[in-house]
Design a protein around this nucleic acid. Structure first.
Lengths: 341, 341
DNA sequence: TCCGCATTGTGTAACGATACACAGATACCC
DNA sequence: GGGTATCTGTGTATCGTTACACAATGCGGA
């Protein structure tokens, strides 16, 4: 079982040309029934497993697969509820179109770009990454369609993202109403992912575009409302994880915050958990809001920016397959519930 | 930007042979520094993105990727904690070895086998599936290494699995001690995944080997202990999901069960949830045990069969890459906690 | 009877790259 | 100075398949 059976061998054995065998697999209708039967019989006899996918890809000039570049260990992608919803949308399109799904986790190491470049795929979907990610330069130079979820904008790539800045502005307006000490619970600023507490950090230091835009939106509102952003407490978490974020949620409450815009449902839940531990009343003592409107958000009565990451995953996949994709940015809506005043 | 730049073009433009360009990318040390510089310069100038992965794969006769066949929608794989731990192990090996990870969800439809066959991969990992899955026949006829997690056994494929039957026998012995009305909360029997309540179902009807073996193990114990398996209540869930399984857990308790062997931590938690709702004391009124020993199991004091799905994922990935893999079955241990007597 | 058309099969030439063996040049040793 | 080892570069022959254009055959209709 070590030598592989080729189409040519099947052809020889069944007394037809290789092309006929090829047609047997790709356009069976074009072949006389009797010939088809004989060829398939010989193929079975010889143990020919069907056309070699690699050779076929080379000749046809497409691979029947898209690559999904994830900026983290795969475990991350599996644990993060947002990433999961997004990937589910991507996978759905893959199944509909009969194409494969190649997961390419990158961790910021040197061989990342090689792994990305050497994937046999027809297009790429890049999950939220930092402005300076070298992978972006690589994929955009490959003459293959690229969809970047959540930015950054790159020449030759489509960005699929809600208007994070506008949504943040509106959410901050909702959440900070009647508050005396507004605050923010933020995603990491850069790949170092160090948890810390800051005061009105400079948005230019934020390397993840989604995070930066949401911060900018909050600042927009602060300016609208005449608040001093310089003293706005901004706690940065290491991971988008409810349990993990507990520490920074506590830190925020320690500053006396009475209204928190958190950058995801998970982070908002972390704040709610902390409030519960302290016996704070929500929203009377503390207003909280987040993003995404996942299934838990309605259960916990969280005010949140609703968006469909599932649909955005679908859009990205379609773009990576060469479709035009949607002509407009994805929808978002501020869903107001009992966690804000 | 529509014609693609080839190695030959770079060669011509830089006045060397194609082989030299190839060496520049694959064995740069073999090329004179000056030549290397010039070639790379020309390549950059022409926008040559580096060797085409497909052509390279064809020539080298390997793809640098493994395929992971999942018997369900991708969303499932992302939601199921066991599948996630397993996939994380697979992904870890992929990263270490610099190979890609191709996810191939199958749903029991006709094009499944084509999608599996036409994936450009060097080997396959098949996640738990039914005995009769046609995909098994396909992958085993491909002359590529195949690891099947949880069985079934197929000629030409390695099975990676704990001894489910033996572990079930031991767990049942632990759990049913002192019980008058033992019962089982089971994974689905087949791909239809219909939830239902049965009495001592015939194991031959169970198409998932993992499920069948665990059921057989429980029956083994029943015989050891002189219990009548014919009247053993076995509730079958539609999904391995804590919330989803609530209904069948309730149904089991309605039968008056006072000891339940559940086939996973998740299902065991569903039983604990139901017990809590009814105010039953665990383990006094109700003994419960499960499988996997995930992170929540210790928190909730669950007796469970500990196994490392992460390591099993690693083993499967190594096998799919052509390694020998471990010589013995994966380890398992009954971890006894407060949920049993 | 002859033309036209549909049906079925066949050569040829890539797709883009690399394994392998070898050639020319240079350096180095005794 | 001859012999040998090292360093660089080059032809050739695939890897296994499919696009394309064309040839052979048979059949119906005018």
């Amino acid at each position: 079982m070590s030598t592989r059976v080729t189409m040519a061998q099947v052809a020889r054995r069944s007394g037809v040309s290789p092309m006929t065998v090829s047609y047997c697999y790709n356009q069976p209708d074009r072949v006389a029934p009797e010939t088809l039967r004989r060829v398939l019989e010989v193929a079975a006899e010889l143990g020919y497993p069907g056309p070699d996918p690699t050779a076929r890809s080379l000749r046809r000039r497409h691979n029947g697969a898209i690559g999904v570049v994830l900026g983290e260990h795969l475990a991350y992608a599996f644990e993060d509820p947002q990433a999961r919803r997004f990937l589910t949308g991507v996978a759905e399109v893959c199944r509909e179109r009969g194409v494969g799904l190649n997961l390419i986790p990158t961790t910021g190491e040197d061989d990342d770009v090689d792994r990305v470049r050497s994937a046999s795929v027809d297009g790429y979907v890049v999950w939220t990454t930092v402005d300076s990610d070298p992978v972006l330069g690589v994929v955009s130079g490959l003459d293959k369609p690229v969809a970047v979820h959540g930015g950054p904008a790159v020449p030759g790539a489509r960005v699929v993202s809600i208007d994070n800045r506008a949504s943040a502005r509106e959410l901050a307006a909702r959440t900070f109403t009647g508050a005396r000490h507004p605050a923010v619970l933020s995603f990491p600023f850069d790949r170092d992912r160090l948890a810390r507490l800051e005061s009105g950090p400079d948005p230019d230091r934020v390397e993840f575009p989604v995070t930066r835009d949401r911060l900018l939106g909050v600042y927009d509102h602060c300016r609208d409302a005449g608040l001093d952003t310089g003293r706005l407490p901004v706690a940065v978490v290491a991971r988008n994880d409810r349990a993990d974020a507990a520490g920074m949620a506590e830190a925020l409450l320690d500053t006396g915050a009475d209204a928190v815009v958190a950058m995801s449902d998970q982070l908002a839940f972390a704040v709610l958990d902390a409030a519960r531990r302290r016996g704070l009343r929500v929203p009377a003592d503390l207003a909280v809001a987040g993003w995404d409107d996942g299934p838990d958000a309605s259960r916990e009565g969280l005010t949140t920016i609703a968006q469909s990451l599932h649909d955005q995953g679908r859009s990205c996949a379609l773009i990576a397959l060469g479709d035009r994709g949607p002509s407009r940015d994805p929808e978002w809506t501020a869903t107001v519930r009992a966690s804000t005043r």
